[in-house]
Computed example of a mutant assay.
Amino acid sequence: MQLIPQSPDIHAYLAADEAVDHDHPLVRETADALWGATGDAYSYAEAAFEFVRDTIPHSADSGDPRVSWRASDVLRTRNGVCYAKSHALAALLRARGIPVGLCYQLLADDDGSNPAVHGLIALRLPGAPDWARLDARGNKPGVDARFALDAERLAFPVRPELGEVDYPELHAAPHPAVLAALRGAADRQELWRNLPTGIGKFPVG
């Protein structure tokens, strides 16, 4: 799909903020270790994606009740939902100068009920003609997300007939509704009850 950057300034997609805190020592340390095992932007991006996808369990799969939302906390606790894991992957990629935006989908149950916003990322690698979306949510039976730049291999293909939506906006920072849900939840059960059920555009912060 064609993504619409929220900001015309590519540097907005390299910035550190409260959630994508790639200036944190743990994020830098992790990025340095991954870079040392790869050495170029393309192989580093794939390694960072697989690291977040495979070594940080999605808390709904693991049963972990904790709610993390800062990238550094996700790396420290090895725990997070889709939003938090997206923040972690964005931080690792931005730490090595790779522009990353945050993207969202509206997903639902198989009967169209219980709509909720799902988080993923898009990156822009050197020389690439466009942004490419990646979903590091974590694989499980029925979910097989992969690192792919030419054809998307996301965790969840959108089903428009059920009211699901691919939001085209490419956000430089986490959406306020997402951050509010994460920061306001005492545990994952409370977060699940208060997941955003849609997002709109918001001004550059």
Rank of each mutant, 00 (worst) to 15 (best):
P203A: 15
Y167E: 01
Y44T: 03
G205L: 10
R96N: 03
L93F: 07
G163Y: 11
L170C: 07
F51M: 08
P196L: 10
N194S: 14
E46C: 09
F202H: 09
G138A: 10
T77I: 08
R124L: 15
D135E: 05
E46K: 13
N79H: 14
G112M: 13
R124M: 14
N194R: 15
L182M: 09
K85I: 04
A91D: 00
P99G: 09
Y13W: 11
P99V: 10
L3A: 07
P160T: 08
A19Y: 11
S86L: 07
V178H: 06
R183F: 12
A37L: 09
A132P: 04
H11S: 11
F156Y: 15
L191Y: 08
D61I: 07
H171R: 15
D17P: 10
E169T: 09
A108F: 09
L92E: 00
Y83Q: 05
G80E: 03
P141Q: 08
P174G: 12
G36A: 10
L14T: 00
R78G: 03
F49T: 00
G205C: 05
H171L: 15
R146V: 00
E50T: 06
A48P: 03
V100R: 02
L34K: 05
N194P: 00
L14N: 02
L170G: 03
D54I: 06
A155C: 14
L123Q: 00
T197H: 13
P203H: 09
S7Y: 09
C82Y: 03
I56W: 11
G80W: 13
A90E: 00
V204F: 14
D109V: 05
H58T: 00
D187R: 14
E164N: 09
V20Q: 01
D64W: 15
V67L: 11
V67T: 03
P126L: 14
L125F: 08
P25S: 04
L182W: 07
P196T: 01
G119W: 04
R183Y: 06
L134F: 02
I56R: 06
P157K: 14
A180R: 11
A71M: 05
G97Q: 04
R78Q: 13
G198Y: 09
V74P: 01
L154N: 05
I121N: 06
D187A: 13
F147V: 02
P126Y: 14
A31G: 10
R183G: 10
R78N: 05
A180M: 07
D187M: 14
G119E: 04
V158H: 07
R76D: 06
R153N: 04
R193H: 13
S68L: 12
K85G: 01
L26P: 00
P115F: 12
A122D: 01
I199G: 03
H175N: 01
I98K: 03
L14F: 06
Q189F: 14
D9Y: 10
D23T: 12
G63L: 11
E29F: 15
A15K: 09
Y44I: 07
A181F: 11
P65C: 12
R183E: 08
G205T: 04
V143A: 06
L149F: 05
D64Y: 14
Y44Q: 02
L154Y: 06
P141F: 11
L75T: 00
A95W: 04
P99I: 07
D144E: 12
P168V: 14
P203W: 09
A186N: 08
R159Y: 02
L162W: 05
G112A: 11
L154W: 06
L34F: 04
V165T: 06
T55Y: 15
E18Q: 13
L149H: 01
G97T: 01
